[in-house]
Amino acid sequence: MGESVEDIKKHVRVYIGVFVALLVLTGVTIGVSYIDMGHGVNIAVAIVIAAIKASLVAAYFMHLISEKKLIYYTLILAAIFFVGLMFLPVGHSLDEIRI
């Protein structure tokens, strides 16, 4: 792609920023895990922080923020199936309740 050296240097500054953000969020995850906010809340907070970190990695390191449509479509499809997978255990629990 036609990116100049200046463009790449700008990218590098963003990467360093994302790196610092990831380190801070790792610290936050560990710190928060020692605060007892109730079991469910602790899990929710940890997953939300992990999701933010994952989004940063995907958006900036994996260049998803400026990717072509076909890749978005592929990932949307994967995401739909992924959500389906996550709900399988819920379906199992519902089955148990019915019994």
Binding site: T74, L85, P89
Partner: peptide, 29 residues
């Protein structure tokens, strides 16, 4: 609109999402 390697790696990663997703789902269960 992509070079073949780029599309290839993302298709592969989509399948990886399913591989790890299945194990995360098992973890929850």
């Amino acid at each position: 609109g992509l070079n073949n390697a780029k599309l290839g790696i993302w298709l592969f990663l989509a399948s990886e999402v399913m591989l790890f997703g299945a194990l995360f789902s098992s973890y929850i269960l």
